[in-house]
Computed example of a mutant assay.
Amino acid sequence: MQGFPWWCLEHLGEDAKWAVEDIGAHLSNRTWLVTEKKSCAMRAAAQKYLVKQLQHGEEFARSNKAVITLERYIAEKGLGPRVVFVSEDHSVIIYEHIEQPLAIALESQTARVEKLAEALARIHQLTPETNRIGVRQQLEQYCHALAYYNEQEAERLREDIASYHDLFAQCEQQPQVFCHNDLSMDHVFLTPDLKIIDWEYAGYSHPGMDLAMTVVMNDLYDEEIACLLDSYNERAEHRVLREELPDWIRVVALINRVWFKLQEAVTQEATADEENPVDELLA
């Protein structure tokens, strides 16, 4: 299994044998499912874990060590899977394996949207100690990273960002709450307790930003958006109004545009490195 940190398995039990399956390769991380090898009769009792290795933290203006600290905090609060082992030096986290993602656990789309609203309300009550980087500053950091690969594209995006000055001012207004910023239904589980994964892009912002990102991530329609807002406002300390949402969605669209440009540049660089390994370049 190419790229898998085999050394981490020693922290799961000295005598156990493991099967490793690559289940996700993204720019921000790689993830593997690790299953204990058992006889057919004992297979139901086999232990399962997820091994995640964070990557490209610097390019995406993110501290991998800070993400690991946050993941531990979320687990301690009961809102994330149990953390079994971490290595800050290698940016590796091992979690308990959880099943029943939201799309499978609930058949009704309305029930799923209401559960998303509950998840958002609970996330916004958290108060982890983490760097408070505003949306404007985050985008500037993305552009700084992009300039390493494509200075002209970075400069064009900086001009776009400057034109959003008034909207950024709204983002920086109170209230400021802790946001997930990547809450798709694939990241929400019912075990039956609510569990949420993938906190790499979490941080403090206006709650309207997190709601707008959730609308976009899950491709919600008018009735579903109304359901999300109504259900959220019933639970949350700070209400978000429907008429405010278009402005938040505009900011989300800009964030995604800048992020995808950076992702494209990093991907092209990584692909070029794979096609031209160091040994060949030095030959």
Score class of each variant (00 low, 15 high):
R72H: 12
Y73T: 00
Y73S: 03
I74T: 01
A75W: 04
A75K: 03
A75N: 03
K77N: 02
K77V: 00
K77I: 00
K77W: 00
K77H: 09
G78S: 06
G78E: 03
L79D: 01
L79M: 09
R82Q: 13
R82A: 12
V83E: 03
V83W: 02
V84Y: 02
F85A: 08
F85V: 03
E88K: 12
E88C: 11
D89G: 11
D89W: 05
H90Y: 14
H90T: 07
S91D: 14
V92S: 03
H97L: 07
H97A: 14
I98H: 10
I98A: 10
I98P: 10
E99D: 12
Q100H: 14
Q100N: 15
Q100P: 00
P101V: 03
P101Y: 00
P101A: 05
A103L: 11
A103T: 12
A105C: 07
A105Y: 10
E107L: 01
E107C: 06
S108V: 01
Q109N: 14
E114C: 14
E114F: 01
E114R: 15
E114W: 02
K115C: 13
K115W: 04
A117M: 07
A117K: 07
A117Y: 11
A117V: 09
E118M: 06
E118Y: 07
A119S: 15
R122E: 10
R122V: 00
R122N: 08
I123Y: 09
I123Q: 06
H124Q: 14
L126E: 10
L126D: 06
L126S: 09
L126F: 08
T127D: 13
T127E: 14
T127K: 15
P128I: 06
E129F: 11
T130A: 07
T130C: 12
R132C: 08
R132Y: 07
I133T: 15
R136D: 11
Q137I: 10
Q138D: 14
Q138K: 15
L139W: 13
L139T: 07
E140A: 14
Q141G: 11
Q141S: 14
Q141D: 11
Y142V: 07
A145P: 04
L146C: 02
L146M: 05
